[in-house]
Simulated scan of single mutants.
Amino acid sequence: MNTLDLVMNVLLGLVMGTLGGLFGIGGGLVAIPALGVLFGLDQQLAQGTALVMVVPNVVLALWRYNQRNRIDPRNALLLSLSAFVFAWLASLYAVELQAERMRIAFIGFLVALAIYNLARLVMRNPTPSAELRYPWPWLGVLGSTAGALGGMFGVGGAVLAVPVLTNVFGAGQLVAQGLSLALALPSTGVTLFTYALHDHVDWAMGVPLAAGGLLSISWGVRLAHALPERVLRGLFCGFLLLCAVLLALR
């Protein structure tokens, strides 16, 4: 990789990190469509390369979050273990799929995620409580589902976990975000490991993307705090649909 390519990848990482911080998704949902549309990477290679940026972002976010808001270790452990196991199993399945089928499945995932977030604009959120509404073993079901989703698509586990924890389990937003980070760390780590073993990671591209993302994700977070939540959610839905259309036309 020459110097120009290195600089361009870092700049692209800056853009992805900013969007990831803005939408609270760590950059992965931004990176995967961009790598497929702009660079022509097949679906598995795009997902594996995006994970190189996602994993350090999750580590940094979890460390900073736990400094300010202590995460319940019992709940976090159950979510982490179940997510790890099912992410590993799903990633083993994903790396063997035909790339075109994976691309179509990912497009469907983006559309479903956009529809769900649009529905949340009109849904009434329950009043958060200090205790989770359901017994803690049910967190294993959530961890398994979110882990499998992350293992399949490289991202998406935390995107599913946060609304489920707030709308179903009755957790507050801060509690939900902390637990989702605890879920995401082992699942994204084992998924990256699996993709790397099957040569579905472009490290020369992924490392500069990760560097740019780490430098810029805080900018997106600050911008997100300056915008109304409904505006953010609407922008996020529009972005997901745009990515789905571009991938479908590729």
Rank of each mutant, 00 (worst) to 15 (best):
L78K: 00
L89Y: 05
V122S: 15
P137Q: 08
A130T: 10
I104H: 14
A112D: 08
S129T: 13
Y65C: 11
G143K: 00
I104P: 06
W138A: 09
A90W: 02
A119L: 15
D72G: 04
G108D: 07
L132Y: 09
Y116F: 13
R70Y: 11
A76P: 03
I107S: 05
L92V: 09
S144R: 01
G140N: 07
Q67L: 12
R70A: 15
L139F: 03
A83T: 02
A83H: 00
L121Y: 07
V122Q: 15
A146Y: 00
R101A: 10
M123T: 12
F86V: 03
I107R: 04
A83Q: 00
L79T: 03
M123K: 13
A146D: 03
Q67S: 10
Y93V: 12
N69S: 14
L121H: 06
Y93G: 10
R64E: 14
W63L: 13
L81Y: 06
R133E: 09
T127Y: 06
V85D: 01
R68S: 15
R68T: 14
L132K: 04
M123Y: 11
Q67I: 08
N66T: 14
S91T: 03
P137R: 06
W136V: 12
S129A: 15
L78H: 01
N69V: 14
Y116G: 04
A146G: 04
A76F: 04
A99M: 08
A112L: 15
V111S: 03
F106S: 02
R133P: 07
D72R: 03
A146H: 01
S91E: 05
L62S: 08
E100K: 09
R133W: 06
A76W: 01
E96F: 07
W136Y: 13
F86W: 05
N66I: 07
S82R: 00
R101E: 13
Q67E: 12
Q98Y: 10
N75V: 05
L118Q: 05
F106H: 00
A87N: 01
T127A: 13
V85W: 01
A146P: 04
A146F: 03
R124H: 14
T127R: 11
S144T: 14
T127D: 14
D72S: 08
L110Y: 02
L79G: 02
P137F: 06
L113S: 11
A94K: 02
V141Y: 06
L81Q: 07
F86P: 00
A99G: 06
Y93W: 14
N69R: 12
N117F: 12
I115M: 11
R103N: 11
A87C: 07
N69W: 12
R103L: 13
R74C: 12
R103Q: 14
L110G: 01
L89H: 02
V122G: 11
N125Y: 14
L78E: 01
L92W: 08
S129V: 09
L78R: 00
F84P: 00
L92A: 10
A94N: 08
I71N: 03
F84S: 01
